[in-house]
Design a protein around this nucleic acid. Sequence first.
DNA 1: CGTGAAACATTAGCGGC
DNA 2: GCCGCTAATGTTTCACG
Lengths: 159, 159
Amino acid sequence: MPELELDRTDRQILMELQRDGRLSNQELADRVSLSPSPCLRRVRRLEEQGYIRQYVALVDADKVGLGLVAYVTIRLNKHSGSSHAPMSDFARDVQDWPEVAACYAMTGEMDYLMRIQVQDLAHFSRFAMDTLMQHPAVIDMRSSFSLQRIKETSELMLQ
Amino acid sequence: MPELELDRTDRQILMELQRDGRLSNQELADRVSLSPSPCLRRVRRLEEQGYIRQYVALVDADKVGLGLVAYVTIRLNKHSGSSHAPMSDFARDVQDWPEVAACYAMTGEMDYLMRIQVQDLAHFSRFAMDTLMQHPAVIDMRSSFSLQRIKETSELMLQ
DNA sequence: CGTGAAACATTAGCGGC
DNA sequence: GCCGCTAATGTTTCACG
């Protein structure tokens, strides 16, 4: 598994697949000026080496009734009485909550920043009160809500 | 264009394609217990009606050297001297900055929350100083940086 | 890296429930 | 209406030059 650097063509392939993950290998080969077989070999290498993490369909949140996006910051009880670290407890539990679309440990006063995606304020409220605030590690929480989505892209800036 | 509700099968299709956007129609049909043709018809309908917004490949940010995620909140000069609204000026300009992976108008003291994805602090600094702070609508800005990615998914909770 | 051929997938038309 | 069969067309994939 040689962890080679990406050349211009590899970057082009990533750019195209970022825009359309269902491009056929033939069409992709055309766009990057290669014939299908070397193109496919490169794509497989990019998948195997982890440059391409996953292919996904992006579902419209509003259309399926998940129109409320909230950003929540929380502060954790750093050394609670228990014997294990609350940071990793919380990080583990977050994985099982489907409302949490993203969670990062952050610099600054708050420990974690989360993006929560739910149906409406009633659902948010239930999640915040019954799940987040009930978690033993959480000592403070602040929420703010998205009024408008200005931009949202999974495309990375490749060169 | 009948904007019909989704039945159980449609939701299953969305769930499968959220997890793997490159599923073949045959495999998808198997998983949702349908034969290929009605399955494809449903997928096309979901695409046309906008339930599926896009198919994408998710590229690993660390691997391509974009390891720094910053969250930036900004406050805008609400009624500057000029004749047009600074909110929409800023919203328009954000579209052209490839560093900005997401931007939402938010409730609370800050007007916008942005996720910025760049190579390192030096690049962030240049973007913040030369682009963001130079924008005529921006009057205040606060940044914090991701120390660790705990969770990040594009999958929506489809019951 | 490209060619070509086998294996496989997509998709339109048609009949049946 | 929505399903599933069939058959033609298009695509992927791999051994080999």
